[in-house]
Design a protein around this nucleic acid. Structure first.
Lengths: 316, 316
DNA sequence: TTGTACGCGTTATCAT
DNA sequence: ATGATAACGCGTACAA
């Protein structure tokens, strides 16, 4: 890539003239301007964004950190963020990370690059960071919180999602409802389980939580508890549960109903018949983008998850 | 983030002294050095990578462009690339793109940023680009080719994969084998179908190719052709096919065997029993990293896909 | 209409 | 042992 100085020499003018031509400012001969614009086109010249940012602290890049241990959901969230930021003239640069050390390091790198802000999915909940890191770089957290100032957590009412799941399944006649979750202690995972347990108890039903069960353990539990419905902590778990049940000779939703949570587009393409609670991805991505772009703090209650009825939950 | 000049003022020394302390160069008083290093730690100072790159064209960032219409496979590939590049001291910056216009624009942005090189999954095969764009920026293509100089295509022998799939299924006693593929005209998709068709014909078997069938079309074809095995163009299609068959009351692999293609780790976590042809992701990512980092051109034949036997293909 | 000078942050070199 | 200076590419302010 050619520089503006080289471009100027090429056209036999000074850098200042090139700049005026580039930015459509007055005070440049029509011929000269045309000559410069032709050279720009021929060499595919573009100003160096790094040099621009260096010059007048205009910060247009937002960093993003997503766990390299990929989940479909993360990628859909990043896409949503990218769209929401683009509307506000900001671009997104994604770095995959692997483990807490890389997370901290990648964050420091973003700080060094003076990005506008960062969107992260922290490795664990309540992840501790030094305050000076985010002094001049707002940190938008998803799925897990960071303990550092100048950061905000963008999350729906996850606990209510757990309660809503139970309420919905009960309304379809289910009573023996299992919750399939993960041993991971992410914020949403914990809250969903708490909501499920609270609502089950409130209805005098027996809460049964299965944390990261393997195929055999899940099939066993369904049989032992005579479960008619599974509330899975996310869509991935739900799909695995469906496959486990199918392979154990149980039909879904004929014998056992399955309710997921996420409704991320990529996943649903994979599994188009899944009844699930939709995580309000667009809303939260929009809130984060508005905060990073303009400092707007979201007002009101956190958004809810909404039910998307498809074909994996039966009325019994 | 503090700058090196501010740091110098803070310590009451000049920028030169700060620089010497930072880079462990001789000619700085032990006390002064300590004072500076303490201030560095306290403020979390890091040199501005943009300024460094601007100064002495050291280019350490590799860009990546992946379609925003997310596929699990892409993300796993990016992770593999990131790992392979990190070994060689290069970092990866990912931008999701949406459509051909954004693809071209994001590529131009990378060129303007003077990145070391770019890894891309082009929107279509034989994607045409202006030569000056890649003049000083090697372009590593995956899954689809770009028509532009200074670019290389990193792919396994996809056609052979199609033939190997048939050979394997025939060795398990199958004769009526369907190929489930996509209407998309990506390089690998086309080649796999060609390999399948060629090998079926060579064995006097009837090739049947289903392009992006919906649930009903797939179930119909399996019944009409009395198929005992499905060769799916990738693991996502394979999983969808399994679910379609299950819902139509056909067991996998009891009545119908299913063979996938990819074996990307994220997907297999979702679907741990899938028999599939493993796409040599690590090999190709390593080759691309070696080319971008050191200009090494891969020698020999393109790598093969290797069979990973699990539980979705039966012996009939 | 056009050229020149300055500064963003970093680093290497030269001078003190 | 330390300070001053120049350069990378860009854009603005000011001088010619």
């Amino acid at each position: 890539m050619i520089s503006s100085l080289e471009l100027a020499r090429l056209c036999g003018v000074s850098q200042g003239t090139v700049d005026r031509a580039l930015h459509d400012r007055p005070g440049v001969n029509a011929d000269t301007r045309q000559r410069i614009l032709d050279a720009v086109a021929a060499h595919g010249y573009r100003p160096h964004p790094g040099a621009q940012e260096l010059l007048h602290g205009r910060r247009v890049t937002v960093g993003a950190l997503a766990p390299a241990v990929t989940q479909v959901f993360f990628m859909d969230l990043l896409h949503e963020l990218k769209t929401a930021l683009a509307v506000r003239g900001l671009r997104l640069s994604v770095t995959p990370y692997d483990g807490e050390v890389e997370f901290r390091d990648a964050l420091a790198e973003f700080a060094a690059r003076r990005v506008r802000g960062v969107c992260v999915i922290p490795p664990t909940d309540r992840f501790l960071l030094p305050d000076e890191l985010t002094e001049d770089m707002p940190l938008a957290c998803f799925l897990n919180r960071c303990e550092v100032r100048n950061s905000r957590f963008f999350a729906p009412d996850e606990r209510r999602a757990g309660r809503d799941a139970v309420t919905f399944l009960v309304s379809r006649g289910h009573r023996r409802i299992l919750h399939v979750t993960s041993v991971r202690q992410a914020y949403g995972i914990v809250e969903r389980a708490a909501g499920y347990t609270a609502e089950m108890k409130a209805r005098k039903l027996k809460p049964v939580v299965l944390a990261s069960p393997d195929d055999a353990a899940l099939a066993d539990a369904v049989r032992r508890e005579e479960a008619t419905a599974l509330f899975c902590m996310n869509d991935e778990r739900a799909l695995r549960a469906i496959r486990t049940l199918n392979r154990a000779g149980r039909s879904v939703p004929g014998e056992v109903s399955v309710l997921g949570l996420d409704n991320s587009p990529t996943f649903i393409r994979l599994c188009p018949d899944l009844t699930t609670l939709a995580w309000p991805m667009a809303t939260l991505a929009g809130q984060a983008a508005a905060w990073l772009a303009a400092g707007e703090i979201p007002a009101g209650q956190p958004p809810f998850l909404t039910l998307v009825e498809r074909e994996t939950v039966n009325h019994v």
